[in-house]
Design a protein around this nucleic acid. Sequence first.
DNA 1: TCTGGGGTCCTAGGACCC
DNA 2: TCTGGGGTCCTAGGACCC
Length: 410
Amino acid sequence: MSEAFPKAIVHIDGDAFFASCEIAQNEKYRGKPVVVGKEKGIAIAISYNAKDRGVSRGMLMGDIRKICPDVIVLSSHYDLYKIYSRRMYAIARRYSPVVEEYSVDECFVDISQSKEYFETVARKIKHDLEQDLGMTFSVGLASSKTLAKVASKTRKPAGFTVIPKDQAHDFLKDVPIGKVWGIGPSTSLAMSKQGIKTALDYILKPEWWVQEHFGKLCHEIWYELQGISVHTLNPEPDHEQKSVMKTRSFKPTTNRAYILSELVKNAENACAKLRKYKLVAKELSFYLKTQQFSYKGSSAVLSFRTANPVDFIRVIIDHFPKLYSATREYRATGVILRAITPEWSRQHDLFGNIQETEGTENLFRIFDRLSKKHGRRTVFLAGSLQARLRDTDDREPYERLTIPYWGEAV
DNA sequence: TCTGGGGTCCTAGGACCC
DNA sequence: TCTGGGGTCCTAGGACCC
């Protein structure tokens, strides 16, 4: 323990992580401009080499080829990135048991218990990561998570930055308040109205003032930026997921039937994801997003757990009239399933709802298998047909079959 | 980043109950 | 009957993150 580091937190950030994983797998790509996202037609991840050539996130593949003809375009392989991610966590755990798996390409490590100099340990972690994984990492060391994040961001890629507590002011005077972890556009705007431009401006405000003008989260950030740790690491290996969501944007429209069918499709896809991971859900919320980016939503709690879209679609159809206005243009819908538990935990309820829903759920499992065999979503509910027609260029005729009790499949 | 998709957490305000 | 004050639970929506 020292003055400079009452706690010692390391933040590790994989540089251009998805692209770096691809390069680590395939040495022939090293040093070349690599872009991941072929399947979506836009750049999801960009190697630093490609970044230097002017490629940016979200850029269309067509435009990328124009400015960078020798670009290597790859599809994304999330399973591969997960493997590298787990290796990253494992390497961090060589140095401390307290590792927070923050995201696929980032983690925090609390090395406060280390006997060596903190900086030496942090450098070793970085060295091991780069040696073993064949890619670079940006690493920050400080006495709080937020400050460690500021540090790792300071130099990229392959940066190594240390912010001792007593030097926080020097670093923060050049950090725009909106770049701080947890301060988004809205808070950033509110702060600039109060004359706060940089992170230093912010921590120089007295505590009472911060509490009076901003919420709990900002109050915590105020401490964190001074190097006083209030955000403890969450070392739970893989805390289970709390929600599953499916959303999709489309060309602005007022077409009621189409919007409803988008919702049905999202519900189907969300349930397919539940079934894939052998999960069931009890709560549903869904929303419509207007052209002006405002949201109108609704939610409901079912009396039983299910992965059957029909159960959720019933609710959606029920609530839809409350939300939809014929005079508004909409650009997206979303379906969120909450209160998620593993399938096997499902209890039978008093009214035997489980039987009823299990019957059709098995049907969906058969559909899942058909889809696996014959390509994505061979079979789906007629309610989402309109949403699906948009996706296919080849209007091949669908065959409809009517299934008793819950309507038509196509 | 004139704006994609998948997540988490916080909070204002209504409903309901003393 | 009208009234005040306070607590809890829930929902809808906001804000942020990667």
